[in-house]
Amino acid sequence: MRIAAIALACLALVGCSGEPSESDMRKAVEATTRRTLEAQGRLGFRQFDSFRKQGCVETKGRPGLHDCYYAATFAPQPGDKPLTVNGKGRFQTTDKGVVFEDLGAQPR
Rank of each mutant, 00 (worst) to 15 (best):
T73F: 10
G104E: 03
T93W: 07
H66K: 01
A71Y: 00
K81I: 11
G64D: 06
D80H: 10
Q106N: 15
T94K: 07
G87A: 10
H66M: 08
A105R: 08
P82M: 07
K96A: 13
T94E: 04
C68L: 08
A75Q: 00
T94M: 04
V98P: 04
P76C: 03
F100K: 03
L83A: 02
E101Q: 13
R90F: 06
T93V: 14
R90N: 15
A105P: 00
A72L: 02
P78H: 08
A71R: 04
K88W: 13
K88H: 14
T93Q: 13
E101H: 15
G64I: 07
D80V: 05
P78N: 01
D102H: 12
Q106V: 13
D95L: 15
N86Y: 15
L83E: 02
A71I: 05
G79M: 01
P107T: 01
L83Y: 02
D102C: 06
V99G: 03
F74R: 01
Q106T: 15
G104I: 02
T93P: 06
Q92N: 07
R108Y: 11
Q77D: 12
Q77W: 10
A75K: 01
P76G: 07
F74N: 06
A75T: 01
F91M: 06
K88E: 13
N86A: 11
V99E: 09
F91Y: 07
K88Y: 10
G79N: 08
V99M: 07
K96E: 14
D67E: 15
T73P: 08
A105M: 09
V99L: 12
Y70K: 00
P78Q: 02
N86R: 13
G61H: 09
A75N: 04
D95S: 12
V98S: 03
D102F: 08
P76E: 05
P63M: 03
A75D: 00
P63T: 08
K96W: 12
Y69C: 12
N86P: 08
